[in-house]
């Protein structure tokens, strides 16, 4: 069963919940897809045995063939190529690696070269297989890396937990696509609700099964909480606003070690999701 944990608003507890689930289950694979700032390893503490560079193919221009006709720049949806009077600029950071420029070039002057944008770490702790994507600093495109990790490491049978990036744009959509279930974790504040509503809309559009976990459940107003409950998705769990959890989290101690009774709650949450899938 593949379950993604997303939130819309950042800092509502995606990693808190993902790591707690992973540490409570038997034989699970953990994909940290929050590649701009992956932090699951701080709580899971895996032994990393391998680090693999990740690159996208970017265009390389053969200036012996190039006639500066500009067809490549016209074909590029992302403005990653600028054709000057006697030179061509390639902006790797804007390139999505789609090869449209290569297909459009009438002179066959474009080949591809790998451009490293990130790294994939593979490790293990006890019964958790841990895979983490890391996007290099100054790189902006996380979607190709997320797509690759899911294709390469997310297609196995068995239980997979995917810690998705915050937000509701492409990286989030890529993270939750082709999963069996999406847990949306939120906090009962107007900001949390606003982003949750967008997330729910996306999940519905993508026809994915989903449920809600409310973190810091005793924070915010009852009115907001009622609205969350009225979104039409089951509220699977409520986690209180607790200083002990926050202090533990700041030291890299997972929720299930601060409050061991949550191990049972996590197992039950997983079983409930399994029944719904």
């Amino acid at each position: 069963m593949k379950v993604a944990i997303g939130s819309g608003k950042g800092g509502t507890g995606k990693t808190l919940l993902s790591t707690s689930l992973a540490l409570s289950l038997e034989y699970v694979r953990y994909l940290d897809l929050d590649v701009e700032e992956p932090n699951g390893h701080i709580f899971i503490k895996p032994d990393i045995r391998e680090k693999i560079p990740f690159s996208i193919p970017v265009p390389e221009i053969d200036f012996n063939r190039c006639t500066y006709c500009g067809e490549c720049a016209k074909a590029c949806e992302f403005g990653a190529i600028f054709v000057g009077t006697n030179t061509v600029n390639v902006f790797e950071k804007l390139c999505h690696g789609c090869a449209s420029c290569k297909l459009a070039c009438p002179e066959n002057a474009i080949s591809e070269r790998p451009y490293v944008v990130g790294e994939i770490s593979i490790g293990r702790r006890d019964k958790i297989e841990y895979i983490m994507g890391y996007l290099k600093l100054t790189e902006a495109l996380s979607t190709p890396l997320i797509r690759y990790i899911k294709k390469e490491y997310g297609m196995v049978s068995g239980d997979i937990i995917m810690d998705a990036p915050p937000g509701t744009s492409c990286p989030f959509v890529q993270s939750i696509s082709d999963t069996d279930f999406v847990i949306l974790i939120t906090e009962p504040t107007p900001f949390g609700l606003s982003d949750l509503e967008i997330s729910v809309e996306i999940v519905r559009d993508m026809k994915l099964k989903a449920g809600i976990v409310i973190n810091r459940a005793d924070l915010g107003s009852e009115e907001v909480k009622e609205k969350i409950k009225g979104l039409g998705l089951p509220v699977l769990l409520e986690i209180p606003f607790s200083k002990d959890i926050a202090v533990g989290y700041s030291k890299g101690i997972p929720l299930v070690d601060v409050l061991p009774e949550y191990r049972e709650k996590m197992k039950k949450l997983w079983e409930r999701i399994r029944e719904m899938v």
Binding site: A73, F78, G79, A80, F82, G84, N89, F91, L94, A140
Partner: peptide, 15 residues
């Protein structure tokens, strides 16, 4: 209102 690479598109226009 380009999503990304606005400056590059602007230079293309001026060219």
């Amino acid at each position: 209102d380009a999503v990304g690479g606005a400056a590059i598109k602007a230079v293309e226009f001026l060219k």
